[in-house]
Design a protein around this nucleic acid. Structure first.
Lengths: 205, 205
DNA sequence: GGCATCTGGCTAACGTCGTTAGCCACGACC
DNA sequence: GGTCGTGGCTAACGACGTTAGCCAGATGCC
């Protein structure tokens, strides 16, 4: 009946090939090793992130973004083909940072699911708007650095001993807990620590 | 740092009291017992639902909605104060229908978590856009029929023997599985039935 | 029957959004 | 010293939610 697969509106458009680094193609002087973005493009992404994290997704408009950079909105299109290309960079940042957080937890307490869960929860709640942006739509996989998605998933998969069913169930549990908490779906007096403990212990006795 | 609590943009505004049934106040002739909406208002909600379910959230605009009803967009505001009031009705429908689905599953297999999980998943995947609408923002509790949220939660709470931590963990798992599947976050070849089984069995041995 | 009022349409318009077209200043390069 | 790419700009378009204000028909009351 429906397509059963989200929106296909802003992101996640189907077939596409080109790079996403502005209509003028190449990267700026000395390009830096950062995903191939020019310094100016990186400053735009930084401003976008600040805007998103401080004021939420509704505040992340092309005009507000340009304002924060002291330029006009159309100038942004010299650096990114459209708004979703900026968002893709934010999503990539979130993926990379959460991967780093999980890897750190893994290093400190190898194989510990509670440690991973705590790291996941902590990162998400520290960056709720970013977490939602990266999470509440199909992943724009075609525009993400190759391997990033796998890297973000790897620590959990390792902690599950390669049991993918268990890893997916655990991820779903953690994501559900986090996203429901971010959206205020639990009662104010709910003992979320208790629910986390119950869930992680049940999944990993 | 951030408000850590979603958007507060369209829905979930804070303090409010009035009814949500259009600027003219009362309900139409013979009002019908349905949430106090006039027949015309109900037809608007029905059209909104069709639009949402068939074409996704981006297609649910006031102009498109009016078009489907053969009227102009501003006329909608004779029946609802704003777009979010229409969405609230859709959210209430989703809550009521998923509650009914869970209650049916409960009747057929009392106390069975797998049966509840299957009913939950099936309902969500049959109405993915509606499920997202009702789920990916703070609940507009002030405008929902009293008791509806509790009714939707009750079957799971009963199946958990009143263990709220367990009920919340199970809900988070189920919601996570569903929402990640809707957004295409699992690999195409992932064995989701396996992940569901793993999760439900772990949480309810 | 006549009149007021309410209901539910309408057009026009506002401000915001993402985005495009087209212009131009500046610096690098040959 | 032209040429050209880079990265700004203004003006504008179409779509969005929403408001103001007008008006036809039905309803209710005398």
């Amino acid at each position: 009946m429906t397509d059963g697969q989200g929106d296909r509106g802003a992101d996640g458009r189907g077939t596409q090939v080109g790079d996403r680094r502005g209509p003028q193609g190449g990267q700026g002087a000395q390009g830096g090793g950062f995903g191939g973005l020019s310094p100016r493009a990186r400053s735009i992404v930084a401003a976008a992130r600040a805007l998103l994290e401080e004021s939420g997704p509704a505040a992340l408009t092309m005009r507000a973004l340009a304002d924060h950079l002291g330029i006009k909105a159309p100038s942004l299109y010299k650096h990114f083909p459209d708004k979703s290309a900026v968002e893709v960079e934010l999503i990539a940042q979130m993926l990379a940072e959460s991967a780093a957080a999980l890897e750190a937890a893994e290093t400190q307490a190898p194989g510990s699911i509670p440690a991973l869960a705590e790291a996941y929860r902590e990162y998400a709640l520290e960056h709720p708007h970013l977490y939602c942006l990266a999470t509440e739509r199909p992943l724009p996989r075609a525009f993400l650095p190759p391997g990033l998605e796998d890297r973000a998933a790897a620590p959990l998969v390792r902690a599950c001993g390669g049991d993918m069913d268990l890893a997916r169930a655990t991820w779903a549990f953690a994501h559900g807990m986090v996203i429901l908490e971010i959206h205020g779906r639990f009662p104010d007096d709910a003992d979320l620590a208790g629910a986390w403990k119950k869930g992680t212990r049940a999944l990993h006795p």
